[in-house]
Every structure is written in C-alpha cells, then in structure tokens.
C-alpha cells in the first residue's frame, strides 16, 4: 500500500512537471521572442579590448541575470538520460531560455540608459541546488554582462 501511494505521488509529480513545465516554457518563449524582436536594433559585440574602441562618450557595465528552475518531468528525464548517455534534450530548453532571458535583461537595462552598443558581452552559468543538496530540484543561473556605451 505504501509503495502504491509512492508510485501515485511519483506519477502525479511527473504529470504536474510535464504540464506546468510545458505551459510556463511556452509562455516564456513567447515573451522572449517578442522582446528579442523589440531589442534587435542594439548591437551586441563580444570582442574585448584589442580592436579600436568606438568613440564612446560614456560607458557603463550592465548585468542581466536569471535563475530558472527545472521541473520534475525534466529532472526525471535527465536522470534517465544519465543512465544511458547522450544529449540531455530535457535541459536544452532550460539553458536556452536562461541565456536568452539574461541577454534580454542586460539589453533592456542598457537601452533604457541610452546605450547604442554593448561591447565585450560575456555569459556565465552556475547551477544552484536546494538546501538539502541533491535531494531537491536544481535550478540554473545564467548571467550576461557587457559594457554599454553612448556614442
């Protein structure tokens, strides 16, 4: 009886993870695509100090960070993937959303400030585990930063 309940809880969480995760992911992608097209006019440049700098009147550091959590379905999917190896497709959308959202947050701040370009853009990722270590669902943090300039 106990293990039957355990299975029921497991399947329930799996369904919750799948449907809720899918819903929020679609919603997030919709917002990402819209905002990407709205902020498309500002160039992002990844080269560092070597090339000649544009004629900047003002420069400022902009940081966009986001933490996105996996859902139960993705965690289980990735856990199963751990056994056989291969592309962890379940986490691909998670990181894709993280990178694009972090870049957008950086861009949006820079545009508000009046930047014409963002130079030296970098991306960093960190994984965050819950307080109980591996017992809880993991999240991923993505930070995008770059130097916004006014020409």
């Amino acid at each position: 009886m106990g293990s039957f309940l355990e299975i029921l809880i497991f399947l329930g969480l799996l369904a919750l993870g799948y449907f809720a995760g899918h819903y929020f992911e679609r919603k997030h992608y919709k917002s990402i695509r819209l905002r990407e097209s709205q902020t498309l006019h500002i160039p992002l440049i990844t080269v560092g100090a070597k090339p000649p700098w544009p004629n900047a009147k003002e420069a400022k550091l902009f940081i966009g960070g986001v933490v996105i959590s996996t859902d139960y379905f993705k965690t289980i999917s990735a856990g199963l993937r751990n056994l056989v190896g291969g592309r962890v497709m379940a986490y691909e959308t998670l990181l894709d959303r993280g990178r694009r959202e972090a870049l957008l947050r950086m861009k949006e701040q820079a545009i508000e400030w009046g930047a014409t370009q963002i130079l030296n853009v970098r991306l960093e990722t960190a994984s965050i585990w819950g307080a109980e270590g591996k017992q809880s669902v993991g999240s991923v943090e993505v930070i995008a930063y770059g130097t916004g300039i006014k020409e």
């Binding site: 498309l40 379905f73 999917s77 497709m89 691909e92 990181l95």
Partner: peptide
Amino acid sequence: PKLIPEGINVTPQPPLIDFGYLIVTI
C-alpha cells in the same frame, strides 16, 4: 539586425518522445 533562427541550441523534438525512448530503452 537579424533574429537568430530557432532550433539550433534546442533539439526540435517533443520532450515526451525523448522520455518514451528513454523509458523503453532502460
């Protein structure tokens, strides 16, 4: 300005198919 095409960093495959494949294999 150019939009980055989709489907490069994310495999265009429904997650349930991946999941089903994994379950069956394991």
